[in-house]
Simulated scan of single mutants.
Amino acid sequence: MTEEYAAQVRGRPVPKDRVDALLETVPARDRETRPDALARAERQRRRWATQVVVIDELAQRACAQRSPRGAGLYPSAAPPRGATSHDGAAPEIRPNTTLPAERDVADLGSIVAVALAHSPAARTLLEQLERDQQIPEEAAYDYYDRNRDRFLTPAELTRGADPFHESSDLLPYAQVREGILLELRRAAGRRAFFDWLDRARADVVYAPGYEHPGDPSHPDHEHRH
């Protein structure tokens, strides 16, 4: 009997229809015409979509663990209409067209970037992890000192000053400190997100045909970003 799930997370099935629903919202970027090439592209697209759905499922669980009563699970976006708690049917992931304009996610890789664009739980978890990061004052000032070219005054930029020359005027550290802390906190939060995801995915078991698109155990694997 063919399994009706795309993956299992700690024994709990992730239904195939969640993968199908995502595939309907994200158009194919492959334009193959030959039947064999088209079939391969669709297999890879299904595996890719499975990863996005699994990240959403894992993020829902992580958010529920961090907020047992469900408080604050979706600060970036309200849950989809008809969504229930984590203990019931899983809320569907949904598009969020504002995310790419608000935050550059291209460096996170296509799977994680799309998960953040479609999953309120994944966005929430990333935001929570960013807020959790404690950046020492010494690290912020060291960043300021090592990246002087980013903090030249407008007049110095106009005249093309050497940012590392002792006489060059920089914006005061106190003026740029909050922006530096925000940037360092965001970078640390992303690292924490990937660390969490690596650990969380260790418990996932995939149904045949739904493996990671870069899994070398299947013959047409590929790993692209």
Rank of each mutant, 00 (worst) to 15 (best):
E222M: 01
A139W: 04
R81A: 15
A106G: 03
Q134C: 00
L129R: 11
E156I: 03
T97V: 11
G72I: 06
E32G: 15
S217F: 06
D215W: 04
R18L: 15
P79D: 00
G11N: 12
A202Y: 06
R31V: 07
S119L: 08
R150H: 07
P68I: 02
T2N: 10
V19R: 13
P172I: 09
L184Q: 13
A113R: 12
H225M: 01
Y206D: 02
R69T: 12
D145I: 05
L126H: 09
A192P: 06
R186K: 15
E4C: 08
P163C: 07
Q65M: 10
D107V: 03
P219N: 00
V204D: 06
E3G: 12
G160F: 04
H225K: 00
A90D: 07
R201N: 01
E102F: 07
P208W: 01
A200Y: 05
R47L: 02
S67N: 09
A207V: 04
R201V: 10
Q134D: 14
A188C: 05
D56T: 01
I55W: 11
R94D: 00
G82H: 10
P216Y: 06
D198L: 11
A140C: 08
L73Q: 10
G88E: 15
T124E: 06
Q65N: 08
G88Y: 08
V105Y: 01
D203V: 13
R43G: 00
R148S: 12
P100A: 05
D142S: 13
P79K: 03
P27M: 12
A155M: 03
G70D: 06
D104R: 09
L126A: 07
Y74F: 15
R12V: 13
G209I: 07
W196P: 06
V114W: 01
D215M: 07
Q60H: 02
R34L: 10
A78N: 12
E130K: 13
R201C: 07
R148F: 01
T124H: 09
L22F: 15
R46I: 00
L181N: 14
V204K: 04
R34F: 07
T153D: 01
A83H: 08
L181I: 13
E102V: 04
Y144F: 15
R81G: 14
G72M: 03
S67E: 09
S167A: 15
T158I: 06
F164L: 10
A115F: 04
P219Q: 03
V114F: 05
Q44G: 14
L116G: 03
P75S: 12
Y210V: 02
E4S: 13
E3I: 07
P79I: 04
R66S: 13
A6L: 09
P163Q: 02
A187H: 11
R10E: 13
S110H: 07
L126M: 13
L38N: 05
L181V: 15
H118W: 10
Q60K: 03
Q175E: 12
H165A: 15
R224V: 02
R47M: 11
R150M: 09
W196F: 14
Y74I: 01
D220L: 01
Y5L: 00
L182A: 14
W196G: 06
Y173K: 07
R47Y: 03
R199E: 14
F164A: 10
T2C: 04
R66W: 00
T2M: 09
D145P: 03
E183D: 11
R131F: 01
R66F: 02
A174P: 02
L182M: 10
D30L: 13
D17Y: 11
D107H: 15
V14Y: 11
E127P: 03
